[in-house]
Design a protein around this nucleic acid. Structure first.
Length: 495
RNA sequence: GGCGCAUUCGUCUAGUGGCCUAGGACAUGGCCCUCUCACGGCUAAAACAGGGGUUCGACUCCCCUAUGCGCUACCA
């Protein structure tokens, strides 16, 4: 309405959460979910909560928690409350909240909205299988709902293991409005009395997530579309507890290039892997934002600030998207090109140090090298490859003779004249190297194109290289001449 | 099987009944720049899943079909 109603970047009561299960690294899809939650929180001036959903101790792997938090931090997704920093509603690990879930389950039992179930998983399984043979679907038959109070007490007393089931109301339409998918209506009859507390005392997902979202005062639930079908169950928990439901926003899935669920078959799917492969976090963030969201009809590049500024839940679309590695690569290259040389230098230095290049050599060469390769790389790892001949001896490939088009005689002449003339250059500058080589080519009446391809093969061992004169300048007179001679002797063998 | 959701160029998408001869980006082809490769510029090819309605008019609304995906666990 009026300007003062606009609440951007001021504190608001909006509270969102990212709730990963620590079963592995942070993958693409989860990262997108985290990003959208974070963008929404930033945009609305709300709080972003990190909660670890580790209720299944068998699947849970402790080490992966730091894997996930490290990746989030790398992406720039920061949290206001979480397991490591605490907050008003601590603890933020569900494994530390078992007593809370049990307390709420007890309340529900007392209110006759949930009940003890002594059926063993094996027994249930048998029933399921039997019905499956007739192509029928098993829905829990409420056997334990019929148990008398005395019987239940007796069972508990003798130590019979039990789970707790939520009593799902009969024939009730569960309706909610998803901000992306619109109104969703499901009849409760298709739902069984699902388990909320397992026989080991731990809650199941649909219960712990709902309870925590209530307790942590989550206002907006933003998560993957795979949870859309679970939402009615959680709403039932909200209703049983007499609480208002939050605003639900489900995000379309991210699929592999072939349209199937994104998996290792499709290449790297962990954020960690992209970091190791030399991607920039801003490129990943930007790319992820484009999956299921668009600002207008032409903009594709967004800085984090622009993303926060322009992001809106309303603009999220419903269509599942396929992960396009090529486009990510292009974006990363784009960001790399826009970066200050010093940033690329720092990133590349790290990689090169590991390969054993002395820091002093790095410091002297890299400032000259970066401008030469900046427009030729899409990742830092590609930079590492491209830059190799500047730091290590080269091996000529077996098909090296296909790299130049002249005759053996001609090639030999080119190499020899070059070696002799280059050795005489007084000041080893780019322009002196250029004029030296151009004069040589002219003198031999050879096109410079052809001349250059031969020199390139000799000093770089490849058909492609960074710009020749600049490359030679960085290599230095000594190395250049050594390579020309090395190449020359090789020529004798292959011609 | 049941329930739910989706369907615009190869891919990400714009499009909310006439602005659409459907726009942009990546990828692809061509041209230019050029010592190679890139970068950059120009340019080309490329889509409304199918069938019914509704309407003067449908990419846009409704129905059906097809296809895909998700949920249907004492996984999350």
């Amino acid at each position: 309405m009026t300007g003062k109603d606009k609440k951007i970047n001021t504190k608001s009561d909006i509270r969102v959460r990212f709730a990963p299960s620590p079963t592995g690294y942070l993958h693409i899809g989860s990262a997108r979910t985290a990003l959208f939650n974070w963008l929404f929180a930033k945009k609305s001036g709300g709080s972003f909560i990190l909660r670890i959903e580790d209720t299944d101790m068998e699947r849970h792997m402790e080490e992966t928690i730091s894997l996930i938090t490290d990746s989030l931090k790398w992406l720039g997704v920061t949290w206001d409350e979480g397991p490591d920093i605490g907050g008003r509603f601590a603890p933020y690990r569900q494994s530390e909240r078992t007593a809370i879930y049990n307390e709420y389950a007890e309340k529900l039992i007392a209110a006759k909205k949930a009940y003890h179930c002594f059926c063993s998983p094996e027994k249930l399984d048998d029933k399921r299988k039997k019905l499956a043979e007739e192509e029928l679907y098993f829905k829990y038959d409420r056997e334990c709902l019929k148990l008398t109070e005395d019987r239940i007490l007796q069972n508990i007393k003798v130590g019979l293991p039990f789970a707790v089931r939520l009593k799902v109301p009969d024939d009730k339409d569960i309706v909610f409005k998803d901000t992306v998918y619109g109104e969703i209506k499901v009849n409760s009859n298709i739902l069984e009395d699902f388990i909320i507390i397992r026989s080991n005392g731990r809650p199941t997902y649909n219960f712990s997530a709902a309870v925590d979202d209530i307790l942590m005062e989550i206002t907006n639930v933003i998560r993957g579309e795979d949870h859309l079908s679970n939402t009615p169950k959680q709403i039932l928990v909200y209703e049983a507890l007499k609480k208002d439901i939050p605003v639900f926003t489900h995000l379309p899935m991210i699929l592999g290039a072939d349209g199937s669920k994104l998996s290792k078959r499709h290449g790297s799917i962990s954020i960690e892997a992209y970091r190791d492969d030399g991607f920039l976090p801003e490129a990943i963030d930007n790319y992820l934002a484009l999956l299921g969201w668009a600002y207008d009809e032409k903009t594709t590049v967004f800085s984090i600030e622009e993303l926060i500024d322009k992001f809106s839940i309303e603009a999220i679309n419903k269509k599942p998207s396929k992960f396009d590695y090529e486009k990510l690569l292009w974006l990363n290259g784009f960001y790399l090109r826009s970066k200050d040389d010093s940033i690329i230098t720092a990133l590349l230095s790290e990689k090169l140090k590991i390969l054993g290049v002395p820091v002093i050599e790095l410091n002297s060469k890299l400032p000259k090298i970066i401008p030469l390769i900046k427009e030729r790389i899409k990742t830092i790892n590609q930079a590492q490859e491209i830059v190799r001949p500047f730091f290590f001896d080269i091996n000529y490939p077996d098909d090296i003779k296909d790299y130049f088009s002249g005759s053996a005689e001609e090639t030999k002449k080119i190499i020899e004249t070059a070696a002799a003339s280059i050795a005489k250059i007084k000041e080893f500058t780019i322009s002196n190297i250029e004029s030296c080589l151009r004069v040589l080519a002219q003198g031999l009446n050879i096109s410079f194109k052809k001349y250059a391809e031969t020199i390139r093969a000799a000093v770089w061992g490849s058909k492609v290289s960074p710009p020749l004169f600049e490359t030679i300048e960085v290599l230095g007179m000594k190395t250049t001449i050594e390579r020309l001679k090395q190449f020359s002797s090789l020529l004798i063998d292959i011609l």
